[in-house]
Design a protein around this nucleic acid. Sequence first.
RNA 1: GGAGGGAUAUCGAAGCGGUCAUAACGAGGCGGUCUUGAAAACCGUUUGUGGGCAACCACACAAGGGUUCGAAUCCCUUUCCCUCCGCCA
Length: 428
Amino acid sequence: MLDIKFVRENPDVVKQNIKNKFQDEKLPLVDKVIAIDAERRAHISEMESLRSERNRLSKQIGILMVQKKIDEAEQLKAKVTSFTERLEFEEKKAKETEEEMTAILMRLPNIIDPSVPIGRDDSENVERERFGEPRVPDFEIPYHTEIMERFRGIDLDSARRVSGNGFYYLLGDIARLHSSVLAYARDFMINKGFTYCIPPFLIRGNVVSGVMSFAEMDAMMYKIEGEDLYLIGTSEHSMIGRFIDTIIPENELPYTLTSYSPCFRREKGAHGIEERGVYRIHQFEKQEMIVVCRPEESMEWYERMWRYSVELFLSLDIPVRQLECCSGDLADLKVKSCDIEAWSPRQKKFFEVCSCSNLGDAQARRLKIRVRGKDGKNYLPHILNNTVAAPPRMLIAFLENNLRADGSVAIPKALRPYMGVDEIFPSS
RNA sequence: GGAGGGAUAUCGAAGCGGUCAUAACGAGGCGGUCUUGAAAACCGUUUGUGGGCAACCACACAAGGGUUCGAAUCCCUUUCCCUCCGCCA
């Protein structure tokens, strides 16, 4: 969400940004929102002067009442009543134009960073760098569910009967691997100086609508029947919700948080649930990182954050690449974002396992999250988020990359303290 | 779940239909006087958002409605906190 003042003063910048994102259909919105804003301010001025007049007269009425000058007071009362209708009209108009303005502002994309590559859609995303050696072994790598089944590590049939498609039972070593990865990811971030946090897994409707659009809400969120509560789709929802409508003392920044939560997603719409396996599911667990920082530091944090993901995956012997989102593929709220993709020796290509985003001040403006500066003035912080690890999906990359010809799976050194063993063997 | 009490600035707290929300009164923070330095004392200063070129104005007393010429104050709904009872990991 952009600042209306910025749009008013820099309409050409806003329009060029829309063109860069190939959303030309939104171009007319810029002039429209500027016009509505002018109308809105006119109504506000009129409303406020009427209120000022009413306050002045009401005060006089009070004084007259005390002095028992009832007739004069009654006359003034009539005078105030005479323009209440006009006041109510201006109040209504001011509110309406404000809502119209906000609705349009929500649709205008955030100004992207100059470094973002210009491109129409995900096919034009840019590979920036590869890390590790993508290898294709000389034996065949089975589909990830098959690897898990060899360990008696997954039961999708029962999950379908119990909960439906998009859920899983993990068992034995595979379940332990899942927990180990989460615990390792948690400690990895704690060692980077992040504060570990376990947030609420259910949040209120007003928090949900604060952190996402209505369309996203409908496509993603599960609602608890008869309660004003939603299951979170990611811990980011409750983590950011924590700061809604607050003023943060500057000396507390940066907030560097790493949160754990289960994530629940309806996955309604475009992609739907992947038919086989644990690639795209209704329920998974995730370790996340969130940074709230001063605007001038956000790009530095962005670079640091995606590199943390790279470091974590390399420490588990999983080759990755950084894929930068081009302008057209970048979500409207984001200034810059990239995916960390893990190597799949089975598919002989990379697939998404982490998503790192710098949202600039857009999220803070929407949610009224402010920082009190040393000079006493408030400003909007920048907010970033990134995946540390989402085990069900990353287990695919883990198992494929650490699988040996004899069917056993090597446990990388970093994970051994959590797994207790160097390798795991399929059940006979 | 039942009964009662409460939510006002950084904190405590007064105000309980008007003429003290530019929020009394305390405390804390900041600046100053005094002091070799510190403490104490004294003086000053300390909310946010929006509109306006500005002077200034409007809005905000948990949130949202209502009554009224006028609401922190009265009424309704919701949320949170405290005390007691019941239930329960």
